[in-house]
Amino acid sequence: NLLTKFLQPTSGSILFNGVDITSEKSAQTARRGIVRSFQISAVFPHMTVLENVRAALQRNLGTSFHFWKSESTLFPLHERAHQLLADVDLQDFANEMTVNLPYGRKRALELATTLALEPELMLLDEPTQGMGHEDVDRVTQLIKKVSAGRTILMVEHNMNVVSKIADRITVLQRGAIIADGPYAEVSKNPLVIEAYMGTVTTELQGAH
């Protein structure tokens, strides 16, 4: 992969549960319980919603390539798949073809497939990007819901989303940290206000 060759860290280190994972490959970090979700929705469009989650469960069990097994052997996964769909409010869409889902529902499905891998740490890259107001609210609530018992590290520019679900916020400007802490504190930081609003005379609230 050309990106991993050119984007090697030049300094610093990344620790996860006390282990230095700075130089580990994606597959290695995934086995540690770290799962990533990107801006582009990564689901199988021509499979049903249930089949998408079941495929993720198979991957977690290491049986993804057992093509010789009959479909009946997958039935034990159905109950867990339905539980995951209920967790992200997709229980009524289980038999719907994924391609027919609106964008916000597809992102919810991606959350379900990510949860199927039982991650300890979820990395989300602008999960509400490109959504309408209704979908943003729905996905924001889902992220808060599935954060129970795990850590979520999220890149997000929508201040409404950040203010509703983030426990701790780190603000970067030109690659440097300018503020770190709870939203109530960070949102009043003059450096943060100026970085987002272009002036320190305006209060930071709900702006992209």
Score class of each variant (00 low, 15 high):
residue 44 F to C: 14
residue 29 T to F: 07
residue 173 Q to Y: 02
residue 37 S to K: 05
residue 48 T to Y: 06
residue 59 R to K: 13
residue 146 V to M: 05
residue 86 A to D: 02
residue 123 L to Q: 06
residue 25 K to H: 09
residue 142 L to M: 14
residue 110 E to G: 09
residue 103 Y to L: 15
residue 192 V to G: 00
residue 4 T to M: 07
residue 118 E to Q: 15
residue 133 H to C: 03
residue 118 E to D: 12
residue 91 Q to L: 13
residue 38 F to C: 04
residue 65 F to G: 00
residue 18 G to F: 03
residue 141 Q to C: 13
residue 150 R to S: 03
residue 6 F to C: 08
residue 129 Q to T: 15
residue 133 H to K: 08
residue 124 L to V: 14
residue 203 E to W: 00
residue 57 L to K: 03
residue 45 P to D: 03
residue 181 G to T: 15
residue 94 A to T: 13
residue 85 L to I: 14
residue 108 A to G: 03
residue 112 A to L: 09
residue 14 I to S: 07
residue 201 T to A: 07
residue 143 I to Y: 01
residue 3 L to Q: 08
residue 149 G to N: 05
residue 203 E to S: 14
residue 77 L to F: 08
residue 49 V to P: 01
residue 117 L to W: 02
residue 92 D to P: 09
residue 94 A to Q: 08
residue 140 T to A: 02
residue 11 S to I: 10
residue 27 A to I: 10
residue 136 V to D: 00
residue 12 G to T: 04
residue 204 L to R: 09
residue 62 G to R: 04
residue 191 L to R: 13
residue 89 D to K: 14
residue 125 D to L: 10
residue 197 M to W: 04
residue 140 T to G: 04
residue 97 M to N: 05
residue 181 G to S: 13
residue 193 I to M: 15
residue 92 D to M: 10
residue 21 I to G: 06
residue 152 I to K: 01
residue 81 A to Y: 01
residue 86 A to T: 15
residue 179 A to W: 06
residue 128 T to N: 04
residue 87 D to N: 09
residue 143 I to G: 01
residue 131 M to R: 08
residue 165 I to T: 04
residue 207 A to R: 12
residue 197 M to D: 04
